[in-house]
Amino acid sequence: MKRTDSVKYPRPRLRVRCERGIDPGVRQSCLNFAVWLRSKMEFPIRVVVYLKKDYQIKNRYSKELVSATFFAPYDKTIELYIRIATGDYEELVSQRGEIDALWAILGSIAHEIVHYQQWIEDKEFDETEAENKSEELLDAFADSL
């Protein structure tokens, strides 16, 4: 389905919602990344990023446990969402350090944002493109800090 001017879309913009219990540093880093993303990209159809305190979340389609998911409805008048598991943050900090732990979570957001772009453009989901473009997004974000 291609977008046309005659279709009414839901509200635009990227939003972030945090569950209680999310590490404050994770929360603030994700909010900062979202502010930066909004300044660099267009979000013509609202997408909400839900930060979950779970270690992993269940993929709605495959039922497997994953660290991030993107809900992409067939109907482009339905608002979509991204869910990001942050429950392994402390474990990641002990394994990789704080910066790399935060980077892993931001990388999950960036990856799902690329899938959002693919969805907006009516493209097939391409994991290689999502990996490459998410790294480019993170590099650009790091350069802006």
Score class of each variant (00 low, 15 high):
Ile99Phe: 07
Gly87Met: 03
Ile109Leu: 02
Ile45Met: 05
Arg11Gly: 04
Arg3Asn: 11
Met41Asp: 00
Phe141Tyr: 13
Leu92His: 07
Ala34Asp: 04
Pro10Tyr: 04
Ser94Phe: 08
Ala142Ser: 05
Gly87Lys: 06
Tyr9Ser: 08
Cys30Gly: 07
Val7Lys: 14
Glu79Asn: 13
Leu102Trp: 04
Glu135Ala: 09
Arg27Val: 15
Leu37Tyr: 03
Lys58Gln: 15
Arg27Pro: 01
Asp23Ile: 15
Ile84Gln: 01
Glu90Trp: 12
Ile120Cys: 02
Thr86Gly: 00
Gly97Pro: 10
Arg27Trp: 00
Ser144Val: 01
Asp143Thr: 04
Glu19Gly: 04
Ala140Lys: 13
Leu138Lys: 05
Ser39Leu: 01
Ser62Tyr: 14
Phe71Tyr: 11
Arg13Leu: 03
Ser144Tyr: 08
Arg11Ala: 09
Pro73Cys: 10
Leu65Thr: 10
Tyr74Ile: 15
Asp5Thr: 12
Ser62Lys: 08
Lys2Ser: 14
Asp126Ala: 03
Arg15Gln: 09
Leu31Ser: 05
Pro44Phe: 13
Asn132Ile: 08
Trp36Gly: 06
Lys76Arg: 10
Ser108His: 11
Ser94Glu: 08
Ser94Ile: 04
Arg20Ala: 10
Ser94Arg: 11
Gly107Ile: 06
Asp143Gly: 06
Asn32Ile: 15
Glu124Tyr: 15
Glu124Cys: 09
Lys76Leu: 13
Leu51Pro: 04
Val16Gln: 04
Ser29Met: 07
Val93Arg: 05
Pro44Trp: 14
Phe43Gly: 01
Tyr89Gln: 01
Ile45Arg: 06
Tyr116His: 09
Tyr55Glu: 05
Glu42Asn: 12
Arg60Leu: 14
Tyr81Pro: 08
Lys58His: 11
Tyr74Pro: 11
Gly25Ile: 10
Arg11Phe: 13
Glu131Asp: 12
Gln56Asn: 13
Val47Arg: 02
Ala72Asn: 09
Glu129Asn: 06
Cys18Asp: 04
Lys8Arg: 13
Leu106Val: 03
Val114Asp: 02
Arg3Tyr: 13
Arg60Val: 12
Ala72Glu: 08
Ile57Ala: 08
Gln28Asn: 11
Leu65Cys: 05
Thr69Ile: 12
Thr69Phe: 02
Ile109Phe: 04
Arg46His: 14
Lys123Tyr: 09
Tyr74Asp: 12
Ser144Cys: 02
Asp139Phe: 08
Pro10Gly: 08
